[in-house]
Design a protein around this nucleic acid. Sequence first.
DNA 1: ATGGCCGCTATGAGCGGA
Length: 255
Amino acid sequence: MKLVTWNVNSIRQRGERLLAFLARHDPDVVCLQETKVADGDFPAEALRAAGYGAVTLGQKGYNGVAILAKAKLTDVRAGFCDGGDDVQARFLGATVAGVQVFTAYAPNGQSVGSEKYAFKLDWFARLRKYLEREADPARELALGGDFNVAPGDLDVHDPLQWRGEIMCSDAERAALADVERWGLVDSFRAKYPDKVAFTWWDYRMLGFPKNRGLRIDHVLVTRPLLARVQDVAIDRDERKGKGASDHAPVLAQLS
DNA sequence: ATGGCCGCTATGAGCGGA
C-alpha cells in the first residue's frame, strides 16, 4: 500500500496537478489538506473517473480535508466531536483495507503568543485526547497531515533564524511530541534519522529556489504499521514550476 | 535550473496562510 499526504492549497487550483500526480505515482490512499471547497464542490466525479473514491470534510474558502482511496472507504469519522470547535474542517478519518487512516490539517497559529497560537496548541491537545478515546495504538493506523510544526532543528533550513518562531516553538514541538507519545512514529524520521528534507517552502522571496523550507507535513504511524513502512519520500518535483502548491507530497510505501 | 506570493471572497481590497 502506498499512502500519501499532501496539502494541495485549493483542490480547484490543483485539480490538474492532482490528477497528474495520481497517474504518476499510483498511490492507494491520499490524505489531502486545504481543499478549500464545500463538499458539494469537491471534484468527486473526476477523481472517481481516475479510480479513486473520496470522503470529504469540506468548508468554503478555508481548510477542508479529504481522503482518497482506490479501495472502499468505511467507518468515516469527521471532526473531533468533543464539543470543541469542529466548524473548522481539519480532521477526518476512514478505514481502508484494514488500516485506520486519518487526515489532519493543524491550525497555522499565526504567531507565538497570539489567540490563534493558543487555538493551535489546544487543537493538538484535542487530537491527543481523540486518539486516546477513539483509537488503539496496537492497531495499524496512519495519520497523515500538515501539522504546521517542524519537529526538530533538522527539519528547518535555518534553525537559528527560526528558533522560537511559529512552527518551531518549544510548546508546538511538545504538543506534537505529546500526540506521538500516544503511540505514533514520524515515519520519515524513523527511516532517515539524519536526513535534512523539507515539505513546505514559502511562496515569497524565492523560498523554493533557495531551498528555504521546513518539514511540517508528516505521515505518523502506529508501531504495528511502522513495521510495514518500507520507504518514505518527499516528491520535491511537485513543488516546481507554475501552479504548484507551497507544500510537496509525502509518500509512504508500505508492504 | 526550482525564479521575485498565492488563493479566497455575495472580489476589485483585505484577510489568512506558514
